[in-house]
Amino acid sequence: MSVSPPPPLPVPPMSSEPSIRFGVLGCAEIARKVSRAITLAPNAELYAVASRSFDKAKAFASSNGFPPHAKIYGSYDSLLDDSDIDAVYIPLPTSLHLHWAVLAARKKKHILLEKPVALNASEFDTIVEACESSGVQLMDGTMWMHHPRTAAMRDFLSDSNRFGQLKMVNVTFTFAAKSDFLKNDIRVKPDLDALGALGDTGWYCVRSILWTANYELPKKVVAVPGAVLNDHGVILACGASLHWEDGKVATFHCSFLSSMAMDVTAIGSKGTLHLNDFVIPYQEHEAYFSAATETGFNELVTGWVPRPSKHIITADLPQETRMVREFSNLVTAIKKGSKPEKHWPTISRKTQLILDAVKASVDKGFEPVEVGN
């Protein structure tokens, strides 16, 4: 039986606002996805791309839908020196974020920065200081935050009659990497992305826990014994529990070594939220979650009453395009005299703080570690 393809995404309408001109600083694989997102965003423009090789940058632009007038640069410095560029998207290895994000901020470029934002909170704070000094916007690339499903789930979690008080969160993000990835990908190299799976899939897990807890930091974290590290000491799989003073608990597991899973379960005093594809929805144009309130067993204990409800949320644009659109709106507002929005750097820093604590717990033999401020 043939299956019809999903309907094409609508062409974004022309915006009355001038487009924010983006430069892409690097040709990483994720940059293909975000370049498409910039193209689809009604208030953004793919303006330039840079690589350490001019030929590589030219080939990237050609194969990823850059307009004919897009500028091609054979160095990152050259792109940052272009005064016509409003913002940069930085998909470089994490070890390079500190240098290039700080330099971009000093060049007055607004920054959409891939996660993990930094190798630790100290580096992150240096990046933020540079952004604040130059008055530029900083946002990390956690795309699922911008999906309309996320707002719909927040409505449920915030409803004291349906969900109640948060008690427990459990999150998993894993994928089974191929042998070439485990040998050669930047995410397993100590000099490029030393946080490994914790910085990659773990970032998403920690952010989803913080989001569920309304960004309240836990008091302490404890890494789960059994973390897997490669020969260079880079984490390939790990987990942790997070503990709040009021008794809330969260757990997560992140891995490059297990089958694909992207699950979130949030349990309240009255209701439960389930999500099975929280990082990347099964389909681009719609996504769903299930919610249950005051469920129990039927009389013979053979089923649930009432059964959880399924909520389908349609998306007018892909979540990464919505991210670019929101970021561009913030940049436009700054151009008109507004101050940079502090919400996004604040939650990025909280995510980084928990990653730091989990890494410290792993390094200390899975001892409890208090989360910094």
Rank of each mutant, 00 (worst) to 15 (best):
L80C: 08
D81G: 00
D82K: 06
A87M: 10
V88G: 06
V88F: 10
P91A: 09
P91G: 14
L92D: 09
P93I: 05
T94V: 11
L96P: 00
A101G: 06
L103N: 11
R106G: 01
R106Q: 15
K107M: 13
K107V: 10
K107D: 09
I111V: 14
L113W: 06
K115S: 05
S122T: 14
F124R: 08
D125V: 04
E129R: 14
E129I: 06
A130P: 01
A130L: 02
A130Q: 07
C131H: 04
C131S: 07
C131W: 04
E132Y: 03
S134P: 05
G135V: 08
G135H: 08
V136I: 10
V136S: 10
V136K: 09
Q137C: 09
L138D: 08
G141I: 07
W144P: 01
H147W: 05
P148N: 05
A151L: 13
A151Y: 08
A152I: 04
A152G: 01
A152L: 10
A152W: 02
R154G: 06
D155A: 14
D155F: 01
D155V: 10
D155E: 15
S158A: 15
N161I: 09
N161F: 10
R162Q: 14
R162E: 13
K167S: 07
K167W: 01
M168G: 00
N170A: 14
V171F: 03
V171E: 03
T174V: 11
S179H: 11
D180C: 00
D180N: 10
K183F: 00
D185R: 05
D191F: 12
D191K: 07
L192F: 02
D193H: 03
